[in-house]
Design a protein around this nucleic acid. Structure first.
Lengths: 342, 342
DNA sequence: GATGTCCGTCGATGCGCTTCGTCGATGCGC
DNA sequence: GCGCATCGACGAAGCGCATCGACGGACATC
């Protein structure tokens, strides 16, 4: 069996020393054009690939980014795949790989991955409001970036780095859109108890902002926790009296179950944009794929991830940067689910 | 700044040699109870964690499983998160971690991850019918397991290891269920062109088996390619004349867009299980969350993944095992979307 | 009490790479 | 023509761990 070639083999074939091979790869010292050519030819000929473990051992750099992802993925907003996908792409573009860590290990997972030197930096997804990991992160040797806002991060001078979509701003935009139309009342079809119980940080953030905005506008707001099955959705619509066109219907803010709820409305003969106003928090693709395209705020997972990766690599260069919270601004895309203002 | 403790530090604190520390961790040589205690106490005191890179270098084992996942995840059946999730869980249960490799690197990605010794084994997801990666896999130093069946795997004596859900069997069960009911004709709401173009291997497998089964039963079968937006779904229903209850309606086999299509049917006043027969390929959770619970075959991503991980670790012990194709059997769960046989 | 066996521990070596100090060769100024 | 700076390449020393051979002591055997 042919041995895997090492940099020593490359050096021998190229007729140079092994350290020269290393400098060709890293570019950390000047190499003459002639030598570089020799070495690169030898690499190609041998199909050389540097050994990641050896490199990590010698250089203290793994070229790996760890991503801590929720276990019961699929609950919550939109799904986490676009996040991961975008992070992976950003990492690869910078010659890094992605290590997936499941969140069920909790803060012990962070300690493990950090202590074993499995990565150079970490991204933690689906942060909880009270998240033990936020307390552990600053003590680790690698920079950690949270997607979401744990309580710890809100204190002045907190060393935690956080980024997230501006759920507060999104909530305000959506409520404002409803009250600006004919809606006298706002009903939020919110996340189900199974999501709320998980203490996902953006649920209360969204809720508080929505309620504050409604209060400021003098519009009553009802918040419903609706699970992901059609029975719950039907029950919710019954509860707020959306059982057919006719009487004055409340404005609906769909924070979750967007597609299902719109279908349920149409099934009752109630048409968004004609019989009532509907706005949603969802991706643009979802909003446009519906029978009635829905006026919506997109939480833009890809934008958040892209920004996150960029920031993370900056933190790698300057690990001592102070804690900071960054929000990706919300924008509203108007479609056909809201009636023109009276 | 406190240095990260090494096994040498542990040895010093415990008053033993460094090799003894190593043997305590690996258990590859007998250690007295007393010494083990000393070493474990020292580890705890120092919060010692072995350096993954160093370990990989010395032992030729990374304790990492690479998962190659599709880029445009979310297309296709059900989503790939349950797969990844389950693989990650299985890997962690065996003290391994998961490295995420995006499929857009193609076979070069396999070569890179293999050659750099970034993992001990690999799982490749969303295999194409003609998949260059199947040809590369056998030449790698690490075992590779495909989830899905590339053409190469079907040849006698192929060295490729494959596992997948039995889409053929599932297709047969679903078609049989429809023809056993009152349905004179079968209409398949299949994957949209954007999925078909990606040459995902299970689409033709499912289709061929469905067509063969229908032919055997003497029932005409129409196959529609339907995209993931409500306009396409409506167009498809129009095309096959499902515009309201009344005349004799075909049996519907929903291979994709299950929820949306059922909603669309109800919106037209057509009720599965009353006005026509509907069966679907989807998860049990989806099938049950619908307004009318749907008789369905679940592709059981978690079963497939669990089996895959188990097999993969067996391959790690015996890398010379011959190529093999394994299918996870399909089962049909009857619900309320099919009328009783006449 | 001498011999043999086995158990538990130690020291040394090497995995493949990065990096630091060094040194020869080359080109320049005077 | 000589000295000096500069560029480019080299050699050696680790990085932290696993592993192999060796070895010392405890115990049993005759």
């Amino acid at each position: 069996m042919a041995r895997v070639p090492t940099s020593k083999d490359v050096a021998r074939v190229a007729g140079v020393s092994q350290s020269t091979v290393s400098y060709v790869m890293s570019g950390k010292r000047p190499i003459s054009e002639r030598t570089r050519r020799l070495v690169e030819d030898a690499m190609e000929q041998l199909l050389y690939q540097p050994h990641a473990g050896a490199r990590a051992l010698a250089s203290q750099r793994t070229n790996i980014i760890a991503v801590v992802h929720p276990v019961l993925a699929g609950l919550g907003v939109g799904g986490i795949l676009p996040f991961i996908d975008e992070i992976a792409a950003g990492a690869r573009a910078r010659d890094h790989d992605v290590l997936l860590v499941t969140a069920d290990e909790g803060s012990a997972g962070l300690r493990r991955v950090s202590g074993r030197a499995l990565c150079d930096a970490m991204v933690v997804m689906e942060v909880k409001s009270r998240d033990e990991r936020a307390a552990v992160a600053p003590s680790l040797a690698q920079p950690v970036l949270f997607i979401g806002l744990p309580e710890e991060a809100l204190a002045q001078g907190s060393p935690v780095h956080c980024i997230d979509f501006d759920f507060e701003g999104g909530a305000r935009l959506l409520v404002r859109e409803l009250v600006a139309s004919a809606s006298q009342e706002v009903v939020v079809v919110g996340w189900g108890p199974e999501v709320v119980e998980r203490d996902v940080n953006y649920v209360p953030r969204f809720r508080r902002a929505a309620e504050a905005e409604a209060a400021a506008a003098g519009a009553p707001l009802r918040w419903l926790e609706v699970s992901r099955d059609s029975a719950s959705i039907r029950a919710a619509l019954d509860e707020v009296g959306v059982d057919g066109p006719g009487r004055s219907l409340p404005g609906l803010l769909l924070a979750d179950n967007v597609g299902e709820t719109v279908s349920a409305l149409l099934g009752r003969g109630v048409r968004p944009g004609r019989d009532l106003d509907v706005v949603a928090l969802c991706t643009d693709a979802e909003a446009e794929a519906m029978p009635v395209p829905v006026t919506a705020v997109s939480q833009q997972p890809r934008d958040v991830s892209r920004h996150a990766v960029e920031w993370l690599f900056r933190l790698l260069d300057d690990p001592s940067a102070p804690g900071e919270v960054r929000l990706v601004p919300a924008t509203l895309a108007r479609r056909q689910s809201v009636r023109p203002a009276p």
